[in-house]
Design a protein around this nucleic acid. Structure first.
Lengths: 184, 184
DNA sequence: GTGACGGTATACAGGTCGGTATACCGCGGA
DNA sequence: TCCGCGGTATACCGACCTGTATACCGTCAC
């Protein structure tokens, strides 16, 4: 039940905005009563935080060769951004409306984003790339760039561009010996 | 007067959000009356659009060698993001709260952003780079990535990373003959 | 002088917000 | 059997929202 509420809320929050969607709207859309929602969530702010876990996101490959997993993450951007009409990265959209730095949703977003960078860093390290931290930072900027740029135009060129640049970043950090065998 | 109102509104809108700031707050902060504001702007939505022109932004060098102007644009990110406590690109933040696709502010944002990409494209063409359109797209993704990534952490590493990647993008598009003379 | 104008001050209309209160209902477990 | 619990339905509170109305005031042009 709580999950169902969070799902409905996530959809409305993402497509229309945190402040623009009232708890009444969420209740109506879910076919529930406001009273029921407040039985599962203490406040709207807590519901916002919970809804984050149900926001769509690009999928990161769970297995495979490290470099292919990185490439796969960027490849998934296309599918992600053509899905349910894309309006921008949920984390960024939500953060834009969350002014209070101690808002529970904000803290959760920070955690999720640092997990993403750690994922890039770990894959880079597994692949034996030089400077995994730096590579992760670069991939992070590219990923955010694709998510942000892609929100402004309907097409997928931002995703493709980020893919191309990510490949270059990885290639540039590859030990010279292995560079020849890389898939270009 | 109208400009003054838009300036005050821009500050409040950016730091607290479009929906979170009421016209009453803007009037109080500006030391004016709501009546006065509505004499200069037909509606809050028009004021939002007007305030966009007073939002801070990174400065793009107005003259110089094409490649140096591009580098200068990315260099300006650091100063921009250390200025008045940076919360993310105003265009993105505003767009996050503007659901209606025909909102006047939304249309203005699209125009400003396509001007930015055109600027990159023109500089790339002036510099004789191969594929100016592609280079502009790549720089655009990097720029957005820095603006978005930089909003999440206090430090400047996102800006520096984007600078470094932008230099590589330019270098990769340079005709081989000139590549040796490039400033690295 | 006088009238238009841009400003102030205050109040209001109509609606929505987050959140709570009250009362009722159906179902599963002791 | 009956009680508690999770749900429904509805109404309400106080605050805030955009936008307008009314009435007054100073200043400048004519």
């Amino acid at each position: 039940m709580a999950n169902y509420i969070a799902e409905v809320a996530a959809g409305l929050f993402y497509s229309e905005g945190l402040h623009a969607v009232g708890v009444d709207r969420i209740a109506d859309t879910a076919g529930l009563t406001k009273r029921t929602i407040y039985r599962h969530y203490r406040s709207k702010d807590e519901l916002i935080a919970a809804s984050l876990r149900h926001a769509p996101r690009a999928s990161f490959p769970a297995s495979g060769a490290p470099l292919e997993r990185i490439a796969g993450a960027f490849d998934s951007l296309e599918a992600y951004m053509t899905g349910t009409q894309y309006r921008g990265c949920p984390y960024i959209i939500f953060t834009a409306e969350l002014t209070a730095p101690d808002h529970p949703a904000r803290r959760l977003i920070e955690k999720l984003l640092s997990k993403r960078r750690a994922w890039f860093r770990d894959r880079a390290a597994e692949a034996g790339l030089a400077n995994p931290e730096e590579v992760a930072e670069e991939l992070d900027v590219l990923f955010d760039g694709a998510l942000a740029s892609g929100a402004k135009r309907g097409d997928l060129v931002a995703a493709e561009t980020a893919q191309r640049l990510a490949r270059r970043v990885v290639a540039a950090a590859m030990p010279p010996a292995e560079r020849a065998t890389s898939v270009n």
